[in-house]
């Protein structure tokens, strides 16, 4: 193994990526862990916002529907980078103002919490639309049957609507997850040490740009491959009640 690396002239690169100093590998992995933390948090927050958003758009009154329409339109219209800057600076500023008005003084907002909050709001707008479409795709009869048997609204959402819409929502939600993992890189602009920022710091300290950005690219790719595998399992499970179409493999 070592001779192969040696022969390819990659010894230096591997030393740079080593997990123990002076290698920067640990920094990259720490960045990756932060990215995953934010992606997971933002995705879950986005799903919760999306679920209520979809219900509001489908069943809410005119004011709820208008407010939600403004939310999804604005968030999906403005570039995410701009939104992140706005939400991050305005958001932390508002929280600080509120806190000092209440006499608590400035609060330190953790980068992870801010990242989750900001990306969660962005994700929520897309999730709202994905889930709204998925709920509308459920055959009305299945909802009607639940009503006809006296299911209360919350139970119906939990036992019928959500499981029945999953098979329609999963492909869109899988996309959204992959976008979440990559949107974490945008948080580099507000100085949050996720994978991209860690990579840039390592690269500029060592001048080994190629090595580090290729390594980061590899890490993002691995994350995507694992996610794709996981989502295909989830989709298979969500579609357990469907008959395979004749053209489908196996």
């Amino acid at each position: 193994m070592e001779t192969v690396i040696d022969a390819l002239g990659l010894t230096d690169s591997f030393q740079l990526l080593s997990l123990s100093p002076p290698g920067w590998g640990m920094n990259l992995l720490r960045g990756l862990a932060n990215s995953v933390k934010i992606a997971v948090g933002a995705y879950l927050l986005g799903l919760v916002i999306g679920l209520f958003g979809a219900y509001g758009k489908l069943n809410g009154g005119p004011i709820t529907r208008d407010l939600l329409a403004i939310y999804t339109t604005v968030v999906r219209a403005v570039p995410e980078l701009v939104l992140i800057l706005i939400l991050y600076f305005v958001g932390t500023d508002l929280i600080n103002k509120a806190s000092s008005a209440l006499g608590y003084g400035r609060v330190e907002i953790s980068g992870v919490a801010a990242g989750i909050g900001v990306l969660g709001v962005v994700q929520g707008a897309y999730a709202t639309e994905i889930l709204r479409g998925a709920i509308k795709a459920i055959p009305v009869g299945q909802i009607e049957a639940a009503r006809a048997f006296g299911m209360p609204a919350m139970m119906m959402m939990r036992r019928v609507t959500i499981p029945a819409m999953l098979s329609f929502a999963i492909p869109g939600l899988a996309n959204l997850w992959l976008i979440a993992t990559k949107d974490t890189a945008l948080l580099a602009v507000v100085g949050f040490s996720e994978l991209t920022l860690e990579t840039r710091q390592a690269a500029s300290s060592t001048r080994a740009y190629m090595t580090f950005f290729l390594a980061a690219g590899g890490l993002y790719l691995i994350m995507t491959l694992i996610s794709t595998f996981a989502f295909s399992r989830i989709e298979k499970w969500a579609r357990r009640g469907e008959r395979p179409m004749s053209g489908d493999a196996k």
């Binding site: 299945q142 006809a148 048997f149 006296g150 019928v160 098979s167 469907e242």
Partner: peptide
């Protein structure tokens, strides 16, 4: 409704169960 059961034209069984 839980005492009055309904059978529908299009069956309306829950497809994920």
């Amino acid at each position: 409704r839980s005492r009055v059961a309904m059978v529908f034209q299009s069956f309306n069984l829950w497809s994920h169960r």
